[in-house]
Design a protein around this nucleic acid. Structure first.
Lengths: 212, 212
DNA sequence: TCGCCAAGTCAGCAGATGTTTACAACATGC
DNA sequence: GCATGTTGTAAACATCTGCTGACTTGGCGA
């Protein structure tokens, strides 16, 4: 795997297109490497030396730029939350949801897209990071529930929220199975392969058939 | 939390009902503690001293009885696979599936039931253990697919298998969300709460509506 | 050109971690 | 009682891990 996206700078580049001394660029290299490592091996399964090596950067710079391993993890989480929140907008409709989920779960954008989801499932033991994780997951569940007509004071709202959370669980489970086991055909499924089954799941869970 | 189930022996017990020297009992204490720890914190997030302390046993006995931390993990995995295979029988029907899933996911049996599922998602880095995990997950997916009419040479069998794997992903995702985030109402949902949504998921994914 | 500060390197510390080794406590057969 | 094998304990080990402090190197403005 590559050591990360090439640094995009306008001055001081060496022949390979990378700057030799570029704080922002180095920071980003560390973030990218850390996201991959944390997502793949979890927090405790990743060492700062692993990250530094993958980024092609000295270990001590992690402490310099992120204060600590936990700081780096929080930065990764914040970035992932940011991108995901942008992808799954606040006002989703049930009709568009399966397509969005399929693209996010199996998106081919650098192959780094599913990492975002995985990060949300990786506990670091750090209380503040876990708080971010929890809030993010809850926020996503509420967006799903809203798409199904849920409102904070909805009568029988718990039932709908539970179903939204189960739909979210399906998404997380798919990412996890794809990354953690080589389960086929799921692991190689394209967004196009996933959208029809996901539509059936979403419809089955969230499409109201009366109050049932 | 208790240090595990009381040792069941017939001789040499002390006043508290526990034998002071009982290899099989100690082994079991270690297995129970390890299952809880591994499921809750993952392989790398669990130290042998954690396990030994929770079991109330000396650390060195892990090496004695299981050769290594990896050996202990494999033993945990084998036990979990055993219990789960027994719970989800080979010939399941689509009708009974939601009830079985709900009970396995939210079963109150000691509160240790969902751990089994979690263990299947915890990678140890050990190649042999990961092989067990993969094979087990694949076996479960095939049982689900079979319930939906899938056969090894089924025409368009991949489509059905993919859907079965997504159903399995839902199960794993639910366990994960329940344990990893305190997401409500999902985390407190009883088997009874889960069975209706799960039925909708299973029906939506696996119940054939013609060949579609 | 030169001084200065940011960016990067290097070695090492203190604690944690998996494992081993030597030893003590106990139960059992004689 | 005593020898013997089993069970449990304690300490130490080599290595790994996160982090730090002193140092070097490079780039930029004066």
């Amino acid at each position: 795997m590559a050591t990360g996206s090439p640094r995009t700078s306008t001055t001081g580049e060496n022949p390979s297109g990378q700057r030799r001394r570029d704080a922002a660029g180095t920071r980003q290299l560390l973030l990218d490497a850390a996201r991959r490592r944390f997502a793949a091996h979890g927090y405790t399964g990743t060492t700062v030396r692993d990250i530094a090596d993958e980024a092609g950067v000295n270990v001590a710079l992690i402490s310099r730029y992120f204060a600590s391993k936990e700081g780096l993890f929080e930065a990764c989480l914040a970035g992932a939350v940011d991108e995901l929140s942008h992808a799954v907008t606040e006002n989703v409709t049930l009709d568009r949801l399966p397509q969005i989920m399929a693209e996010q779960l199996a998106g081919t954008g650098l192959g780094s897209r599913p990492n975002q989801f995985l990060l949300l499932l990786r506990s670091s033991g750090d209380e503040r990071a876990d708080q971010i994780r929890r809030n993010t997951v809850r926020s996503f569940a509420e967006r799903l529930a809203s798409a199904a007509g849920w409102r904070p004071d909805h009568p029988d709202g718990d039932r709908l929220m539970l179903r939204a959370q189960i739909a979210l669980a399906t998404a997380f489970g798919i990412v996890l199975l794809r990354s953690s086991t080589g389960l086929e055909p799921l692991s190689s499924a394209t967004p196009h392969d996933l959208v029809a089954p996901l539509r059936d799941v979403v419809d089955g869970l969230l499409r109201e058939r009366g109050t049932r």
